[in-house]
Structures are given as structure tokens and as C-alpha cells.
Design a protein around this nucleic acid. Sequence first.
DNA 1: CCCCTGATTAGATGGGCATCTAATCAGGGC
DNA 2: GCCCTGATTAGATGCCCATCTAATCAGGGG
Lengths: 139, 139
Amino acid sequence: MHCCIDICQIRCMSKQDFPIIALAGTDQAAGACCPPLVCEPLSTAEAEELASLFKAVADPVRLRLLSLIACHEGGEACVCDLTGAFDLTAPTISHHLKVLKQARLIDSERRGTWVYYWVNPGMLERLSAILGPHAMATA
Amino acid sequence: MHCCIDICQIRCMSKQDFPIIALAGTDQAAGACCPPLVCEPLSTAEAEELASLFKAVADPVRLRLLSLIACHEGGEACVCDLTGAFDLTAPTISHHLKVLKQARLIDSERRGTWVYYWVNPGMLERLSAILGPHAMATA
DNA sequence: CCCCTGATTAGATGGGCATCTAATCAGGGC
DNA sequence: GCCCTGATTAGATGCCCATCTAATCAGGGG
């Protein structure tokens, strides 16, 4: 029962309906919890939506940006705090921040001259849950 | 203390040394558990290694392949079980399986005429842990 | 031994994406 | 009002990758 609750939490975590890759497999199917029919492969539409999210983190610059922002004091960082860590121009950093923001992995706010970014932990947790042991059968 | 143990488990989960994005932030820094210095941004090399892993799952076809394999009875599937689910040619499916295998997300074995694939749960868990609440500060 | 089916490799092509330069927007001081 | 700094947008370019066709490898009958 509890694993089904976990699954529901994952699915209902945001406004959009997000699926998980695959649910409990053979081992748990034998128990009272999750019936076999729960293991349902991703639909094409679901896979495309998820893939676009994973694409946002599948870039070394964006991974480091996430890391730098999360590690920065107060959990937020201004763009000028970030550009120095890369051998890239400001527009390129801006582009990557935009990609992360469109994926809702980060959010931002302007305060006077500077724009501050912070991580949206809910989105990361959702991606984590999709790959996690609750979601993928342990073969 | 327990969160630091988790972190070590994540790092030591495989032969290669895999980092995590960012460790416990401000809230836990105040507690007795993880000192502030634990929060260290990804290096360039670490980010590139991780990005290549995420790239492997950042494709709708590969996500569905993972899902189909994990959901298939016995936790494994032959290539001929998979191709029917896509509007793609066999060589394309083969290409995607190769990408997943090179990322060590799946493994395979030939049995007579057919080649069987199964998911490597350890790799998925590692990716999951990197994005999970233990790894990324809750801002 | 030949052929048939399953699966992969090789090579070509087209689209998407990371990056740059140049230009524009936004705030703040003098 | 003007300029300076911070940040983003626009547009161009070059590379990587998903996909295809054609060819090759592997195993099993007849």
C-alpha cells in the first residue's frame, strides 16, 4: 500500500501530470501492495515530456550552474556570481539559465541592478523520484 | 551524521568516483550534521561526466526503452520485443540500446538467435541520488 | 551448404543546440 | 539627461546526434 502512495505523490507533485518510468516489478507483484498492472511503460507523450526535462540537466554547464546556485550562500546567486566560474560569455550563461528556468528547475527575481536565481527543489525531487528505486523495478 | 553517510554511499556506489551536485545547505548547516564546507560545487570534470550520463536518459526513445525493458516480464526483454513499440527502424533502436549500454544503464547477453537486455538498477539509483533531496540543498 | 531471421555496424543526411558577436533592455549614479 | 554596469535578446555559425539505407555479422534450420 505504501508504495502506491509514494507513486501517487510523485504523480501529483505538480500541476502537470508526471508519470514515472516503471513501477514495482515482479518481487512486489507477489505481495499485497502493487498489482502487476501497475507496471506500465511510458507513453510516447510522457516520455517526450520527461526527456525535455532531463535534457535541461544533461549539460555540464547547466549542472554546474545548478550546483553553484544551490551551494551559494542563502541558496541563491546573482548572475554576476556565476559567470566568473566559466570560460563563457555572459549571453551564453544567460541562455543556460533561461533553459533551466523554462524547465522550472530554477526561478529568478530582479532586485535593482541584479537578477537573482534559486533552485526549485520540487522539480529536482521529481526527476530524482522518476529514476529512483521506488519507480524502477529492481530487475 | 546520517546524511553524511548517505553522501558517502552515493559517492562510493560504484568503481568510479561519482560526485553529487550540492550537499546540505543552510538549514542543515545549522544542525550538528553537515558542516558548511561540505557544500561544494561540481568541478568541470565531474559535471561533464554526469552530463554524459544524463544525456543518455534525455531522449524519449531511450526513456521508453528503459521503461519497456523494466516492465517486461522477468525484467528483461529481447530486441524484437522492443522494436514493435516504435515507428523506428531496427538499426535506430539498436543505436539507442548501444547508447544506454555504454552509459551502463543497461546490460545485455546473447542467447541463441536473440539478444536480451535488462536494466542496471544501480546506475539509475545513482542518478536519482544526485538529484534527490539528500544531494541538493532545499534552498 | 544455403537461406532465412534477428541484430548490429557503416556511412550519409538533416535538424537541433551550444556558442559567439552585436544590439537592446533595465537601473542607478553623477 | 547621460553614461556605465548588469543582463538579456537577436541572429549567425559550427558541431553533435537521431535517423535512415545498405551492408555485415550471428545462429539455426532444411
